[in-house]
Design a protein around this nucleic acid. Structure first.
Lengths: 234, 234
DNA sequence: GTCTATAGTCGGATAGAC
DNA sequence: GTCTATCCGACTATAGAC
């Protein structure tokens, strides 16, 4: 099915169900989301869930594939740029430390920016649920973008600390870096109250990004020239 | 009701339902958890949920009060110690920077240690759900320990950066610090795969704590004597 | 591909005996 | 306080007309 083809009625139904599924499954969870509310939100007949996706569970998995595709696509440019500039810096073309730091910052800023995109609220809820109780849907997520993203971040951290790329330390550090953005999603309600925010909009995202930049710069200071960049290990 | 009193049959039923509720609500969520499975897990009659808690929703709220009490109690010693040593250091008795850093580390280590306690898995699931869709249950959590904890951490960060205690920066920074532990709960499945761990046990918690210490020490280096400790603000 | 109608199951709540 | 029994609403899936 070429992307340019005019969508048939069936395609429209499928798409409406995918959008409704993202919203309703995200809001209510798999069990609490009823076929009726899914069909109602999509404004299609309830029996069409069975026809197009085989049932509620089939729609659920299809929603995750759809999300994984969109996240992969939105990540692709920054990941490719990071990989490219990293290769260039390794070939001696530029400052490796500054390059890796900039790439990490770009990745974290990208995720921070997603905090403000309306549709990603539902994505985050779906993903957080699957993280607590991973099923087939989580395999879709991890295989499509999570592993790639975390591996890239780990490699960038290794550049900054001088650790071996495959070692535990840079991989753990990459997780703690993601955590610094994730907290604003996972602990969203606590964030709003603690910061006395009424929502997370452009201003708040700017504040978050400033804090992330500060954290990154302090955590990975430029090494003094001629001095090894390995971290002190107590 | 004195804590030393011998529990009546009714007390035992209430307690069994609270324990079962923690487990079942945590595993399935509010909607997917059925009164029958709750009663089954507690090995009590299904009608007793109505008698003791007024219904499924009443039990749900009671579970959160119960969790809030336990978390508050487990936090209390370290929070009190942090507050005390902070006051002492401010009175000139000791190094304020080292004191605040040690207190922050103790708090984060405490939360990291909770990653290994079996019962806290269900707690985390319940709390994460409420964070996404806060209701009366979240008010119980925030009012009982979250606000206190985040305020304390923010104050400690302010000591380390020289920021004004009530300013946004230290409060945001406190959230990013919590995020560095939270990620191992909120993104538990991704953590296991990324680190090639099969579970998060004592060894893994040790690794996490080492990484947290490294992050903290690098993020808040001891200030050169006589030099102001304010962070560079670009 | 879409619709209506319904079969079959399971949910929460509660009345009333003990 | 605990139990059995039951009411009634809501659910998913599907058969069959169009």
């Amino acid at each position: 099915m070429p992307a340019t083809a005019k969508p048939t009625r069936g395609d429209q139904t499928r798409q409406a169900l995918l959008d409704a599924g993202t919203e309703i499954f995200g809001r209510d969870g798999f069990h609490a989301a009823s076929s009726r509310s899914l069909a109602g939100a999509a404004q299609v007949n309830q029996a069409l869930i069975g026809y197009h996706f085989g049932g509620k569970e089939g729609l659920y998995l299809a929603v995750f594939e759809y999300i994984a595709d969109q996240v992969s696509a939105s990540m692709q440019p920054v990941a490719a740029a990071a990989r490219q500039s990293l290769d260039a810096a390794r070939a001696g073309d530029g400052d490796l430390h500054a390059t890796a730091l900039a790439a990490l910052e770009k990745i974290l800023f990208g995720f921070a920016a997603m905090l403000g995109e309306e549709k990603t609220t539902a994505w985050a809820r779906l993903i957080l649920r699957e993280q607590q109780d991973p099923g087939p849907a989580f395999d879709i997520l991890y295989g499509s973008f999570m592993s790639r993203l975390l591996d890239l971040m780990s490699e960038l951290v290794a550049c900054l600390t001088g650790d071996e790329p495959g070692a535990d330390a840079p991989r753990l550090c990459a997780l703690t870096l993601m955590g610094q953005v994730l907290v604003f999603r996972a602990a969203r309600a606590a964030t709003l109250r603690h910061m006395k925010w009424s929502s997370i909009g452009e201003k708040e995202i700017g504040d978050i990004q400033r804090q992330l930049r500060l954290n990154l710069a302090a955590r990975f200071p430029a090494p003094a020239p001629g001095r090894p960049s390995e971290e002190f290990q107590p």
